[in-house]
C-alpha cells in the first residue's frame, strides 16, 4: 500500500470525506450501544435530545461549550504557528486562580471596571504560563510538547496547594474550595432567568477576533507563515522568535479566559475540579475544527453536545457515559484520517 499526493483535492473529497468520518463515528457508536444492550437508534436519539432537545438541554450544552471554545481557540492559534501548546489546562487554571484571587473581595470595584480588569489579569497569567516554555523553546530549543504538558501537573498541584492554604474558604467546612466571588465579579447572565452567562458571548467574540487577526493582520500572516514554513519565513525576514512569543501570549491568554469564564460565570468559586480536562479536550476541538476559529465554535458545540447528551442518555437507558469519550476519540481519529485522505490517494500495489 502506498500513498500518492493529490495535487488539487476536489470539493467532494474535502467535504465528503469529513462527512463520511462523522457518519462512521455514529455507526461505531451505534454498534457499541448495541453491545451495551440498548437499541442503537434510541441511544443516538437520546443523545441528540439530551444535548439539544430542550431549552434546558441546549443551555447546558452552550455552557459546556463555552470553556471548550476558549481552549479550542487557544490550541488552534498555537498550532497554526506550529507551537505545540499541550498546556491549555495549566493556563486555564492560572486564569481561574487569578479570577478567584481578585474576585473574592480583594478589589471592591464596580462590575464594569472589575470584570475587564480580572479578565485582563487572568489572560496575563495564562500568557505567562505559556511564555516560559516558549522562551525555553526559542532560546534553547527545548521541546514545548514536553514542557507544556508537564506544566499542567505542576500548575494543578500548585492550585491544590493554594486551595488548601491562602485561597481556602474559611466558611467552606474544610473543603478545598475558594470563597465565593463577590456579585460584582460575576459574569451576568445573557438573558435574565436563563442559565447562560456572558462567558459564552465572550467566547463567540473571541472566535471572531481571532479570525480577524489571522486573516487580516500582519501578525496573523506572520503566524501562518511561521507555522507553514519556518525556514522560508526566517529567510524572508519574519522574526520567528518574536512571532512565536506573541503567539504564546495570545494562546495562553485565550486558555486563561476559559478559567475566568468558568469561575466568574458558571461556578462562582474555584475548586480543583472546575475543568474536567477542558485543556486537553480543546486539542480535540481544535483538530476537528481544522484550526479554523469559527470551526472551533462548531466543534466545541459538537463535543459539548456529545458529553451533555451522553450524560442524559446514560441516565435514561443505562449505557455508560464512556460512550461519549469513545465517540469523541473515534471522531478525532476518523477526522484525522479523512484529512489525510483528502490530500493523499491510497494505491494498493
Amino acid at each position: 500500500m502506498r500513498l500518492e499526493p493529490v495535487a488539487q483535492p476536489t470539493l467532494i473529497r474535502t467535504i465528503g470525506l469529513p462527512a463520511l468520518a462523522l457518519a462512521a463515528t455514529v455507526a461505531i457508536a451505534s454498534l457499541l450501544a448495541m453491545v451495551a444492550g440498548a437499541p442503537p437508534l434510541s441511544v443516538l436519539g437520546l443523545i441528540l435530545q439530551g444535548a439539544f432537545g430542550s431549552k434546558f438541554a441546549l443551555l447546558e450544552t452552550l455552557n459546556r461549550a463555552t470553556p471548550l471554545i476558549f481552549t479550542g481557540l487557544a490550541v488552534a492559534v498555537a498550532f497554526r504557528a506550529r507551537l505545540w501548546n499541550i498546556g491549555a489546562e495549566a493556563q486555564l487554571y492560572a486564569g481561574a486562580v487569578v479570577t478567584a484571587t481578585l474576585g473574592t473581595g480583594a478589589l471592591a470595584w464596580p462590575s464594569g471596571l472589575l470584570l475587564p480588569s480580572i479578565a485582563s489579569a487572568a489572560m496575563l497569567a495564562g500568557a505567562i504560563v505559556l511564555l516560559v516554555p516558549t522562551v525555553l523553546k526559542t532560546r534553547f530549543g527545548v521541546d514545548e510538547v514536553v514542557t507544556t504538558l508537564l506544566l499542567n501537573f505542576v500548575v494543578l498541584l500548585w492550585v491544590s496547594m493554594l486551595l488548601e492554604g491562602p485561597l481556602k474558604d474559611p466558611m467552606g467546612m474544610g473543603w478545598p474550595k475558594s470563597a465565593r466571588l463577590i456579585p460584582e465579579a460575576r459574569l451576568p447572565r445573557i438573558v435574565e432567568g436563563l442559565r447562560l452567562h456572558w462567558g459564552f458571548g465572550l467566547a463567540l467574540i473571541a472566535a471572531a477576533v481571532i479570525w480577524l487577526v489571522q486573516a487580516r493582520t500582519t501578525l496573523g500572516y506572520e503566524m501562518r507563515a511561521v507555522g507553514l514554513n519556518r525556514a522560508a519565513a526566517k529567510f524572508a525576514g519574519i522574526p520567528v522568535g518574536p512571532v512565536l512569543i506573541k503567539t504564546a501570549l495570545l494562546s495562553g491568554g485565550l486558555a486563561a479566559l476559559a478559567g475566568f469564564s468558568e469561575v466568574a460565570g458558571l461556578k462562582g468559586s474555584l475548586t480543583l475540579d472546575i475543568s474536567p480536562g477542558f485543556g486537553y479536550t480543546g486539542i480535540i476541538v481544535a483538530m476537528l475544527a481544522l484550526l479554523n476559529p469559527f470551526g472551533v465554535v462548531v466543534a466545541a458545540l459538537f463535543v459539548a453536545g456529545v458529553f451533555v447528551g451522553a450524560d442524559s442518555m446514560s441516565r435514561a437507558v443505562g449505557v455508560p457515559t464512556y460512550l461519549a469519550d469513545i465517540m469523541l476519540a473515534t471522531a478525532l481519529l476518523l477526522m484525522v484520517l479523512a484529512l489525510m485522505l483528502t490530500r493523499f490517494r491510497v494505491r494498493w500495489a
Binding site: R224, N229, A232, A233
Partner: peptide, 8 residues
C-alpha cells in the same frame, strides 16, 4: 524550503 511557503 526557503524561497516560498508552498501552502501559501
Amino acid at each position: 524550503k526557503t524561497g516560498t511557503i508552498p501552502d501559501f
